[in-house]
Amino acid sequence: MAGLILENVSVSFPIRGAPAQGKRGGVMQRLRSAYGGGRATGSATVLSNLWLSLKPGDSLAILGHNGAGKSTLLRTMAGVYPPSTGRMWTDGVVAPILSPQVGFVPNASGYENIALRGMLLGMSRREVDAKTEEIRAFADIGDWIHEPVATYSSGMALRLAFAICTSMRPDILLIDEWIGAGDALFMQRAGERLEELVGSVEILVLASHRDSILRKFCNQGIVLDRGAIVFHGSVADAISFHGELVRLYAESGRDARPIGRIDFPSLSDV
């Protein structure tokens, strides 16, 4: 039985304190402020104190403005970023579809990239080989499959990436918003394939700005604001809460700040 639980999870990033603009100081002082004796000079808490529990059948929508921490949350769930405090509990095979367009090996052919990406996502060589034909057929890029990926148009690269990523059958599927390139015909086929994939997984986590997609695939939603969960409820409520939040920000005339909270403990010392 698949499951995913975040128990008071925070994620923070080190900020490499580049010497402040216009700041005078000797080389040693600049080095000290840059490396702080091997430690970062500050940290940005991008996710703070998240509590979340997903069981089979749950499909979670993540809402939030740019920089609220959506992608970081997905990467944390995928096991890329370790929680800096708190604990994460998982069961089942987790497959992230985060940013498929990046991470191709540009001078390897489409075929070779299918193998590389498949293995990177955790498939064995044999599994990849068994799926290669099906991936090639869905990507539908003809003889270009034998050419280096560097020569592909962005649409072709996207189709190949989508075909590879959606060929997995995980228990927990994490999708970051990225669909949108590609022509209308491909988008229709992609939509069908995505529906089929989503139907086969036990837990889905989807970050998107498009309400229609969220309503279609998700049955609950959270709203992130500067790294904290400020709302957790049904997907319809989450969407209206998020709309309200955006309106409030617009009225107050303040932009949503790009990152959660920044502490510069040692910059003030310098």
Binding site: D225, F231, H232, F241, Y249
Partner: peptide, 22 residues
């Protein structure tokens, strides 16, 4: 008031949903 800093919390308290969810 610095709405940006408290927007989430104010709204959350208003609806009551957020606390329930957490």
């Amino acid at each position: 008031v610095a709405v940006g800093d408290t927007a989430g919390r104010t709204l959350g308290r208003g609806t009551g949903d957020m606390t329930a969810g957490i």
